[in-house]
């Protein structure tokens, strides 16, 4: 099977690749923001706790 044949998918290539592509794009886009959000949140809270500790001592 050639690469061209594989992407052609017996004439259904467009429908198949758009389906897989859409799934990939959606699932990646939904996954990324919470990772950065968590990092930001932990940084924020740590900074605040450190400040409070300094103020106490």
């Amino acid at each position: 099977m050639s690469v061209n044949e594989f992407f052609h998918m017996g004439g259904h290539g467009f429908y198949i690749w758009v389906s897989y592509g859409l799934a990939l794009v959606l699932m990646v886009t939904a996954f990324i923001p919470p990772i950065f959000q968590e990092r930001k949140l932990i940084k924020q809270i740590t900074r605040r706790l450190r400040r409070e500790q300094r103020e106490q001592s």
Binding site: G11, I16, S19
Partner: peptide
């Protein structure tokens, strides 16, 4: 491929 639907059956694995 499916005997009726051909390669388009592969959409099933996402759908």
């Amino acid at each position: 491929p499916d005997y009726q639907q051909g390669e388009s059956i592969r959409i099933m694995y996402i759908h």
